[in-house]
Computed example of a mutant assay.
Amino acid sequence: MQLVVARIGRAHGIKGEVTVEVRTDEPELRLGPGAVLATDPASRGPLKIESGRVHSGRLLLRFEGVRDRNAAEELRNILLIAEVDPDELPEGEDEYYDHQLMDLDVVTADGTEVGRITEISHLPSQDLFIVERPDGSEVMIPFVEEIVTEIDLEEQRAVINPPPGLIDDRAVVASARESEAKAPDEGGDAGRGDA
């Protein structure tokens, strides 16, 4: 099975290094020196990692045969793909590969059906489940512990505890300006005081 593990960013320096947007929780395993990765588009690969280092919080890679900035810049936006055994599991207890989460049914804690995971979007701050609802619309659910309370691979479901407004129209709008504007009309005292 093939998994996207990174996207190549811009060239760094003049010796062929590139920045990469890491899309794996195991970069040391998937993006280490000597790793040979397929690419999307396939015509640009495979690429063999010659070296890697972290600079200012970003992973920089150099590939065999890429020796200057121009060659590195030509690799921009290419996806790097690793071949992974489908039975292999991530090392962390609460970690999952995308293929394990795809097509899971999403339900609330009380069993209400929300939809089915059709895509996982990897953002710098967090991952998002793209969930197709029964009516064909989509909802984005942050894959964070406070919202996604359980992943049950045997039952093929993800249980969520959504805040108001995430999957429905019950959002609570809190505005200090609205509270202040309403307080005098309601016969209350706008300031805090003792009775």
Rank of each mutant, 00 (worst) to 15 (best):
G92I: 09
E119A: 12
V114L: 06
I117Q: 00
V148R: 02
I141P: 01
V148C: 02
S121V: 15
S137N: 12
E154G: 09
F129P: 00
R133T: 14
L101Q: 03
D127E: 14
G115V: 02
E150S: 11
V148P: 01
T118D: 10
R133N: 10
D94H: 13
R116G: 04
D152P: 01
E146C: 07
R157I: 03
V107D: 08
V106W: 02
T108N: 06
E83P: 02
V131Q: 03
I120K: 03
I160L: 04
V139L: 06
G92P: 06
P86E: 06
D105H: 14
D152V: 06
I141D: 02
S137L: 08
E83F: 05
P134W: 05
G115T: 05
I120N: 04
D110P: 03
I120V: 14
L89K: 15
F143K: 09
L104G: 01
D87L: 12
G115D: 04
E88D: 14
I117E: 00
E155Y: 06
P86T: 09
Q100N: 11
E113R: 13
H122Y: 12
D87C: 07
P142M: 05
D105Y: 09
E155W: 08
R133W: 05
M102K: 14
Y96H: 08
V148W: 01
E132H: 07
D98E: 14
D127W: 10
D85L: 09
Y96K: 05
R157Y: 04
T108P: 01
M102V: 10
L89V: 15
H99T: 12
E154W: 06
D98V: 15
V106K: 00
H99F: 14
Q156L: 13
I147N: 00
S121M: 10
P124R: 09
I151L: 03
E132C: 07
T149E: 09
E145L: 08
Q100W: 04
Y96W: 11
E138P: 06
D103C: 08
V144N: 05
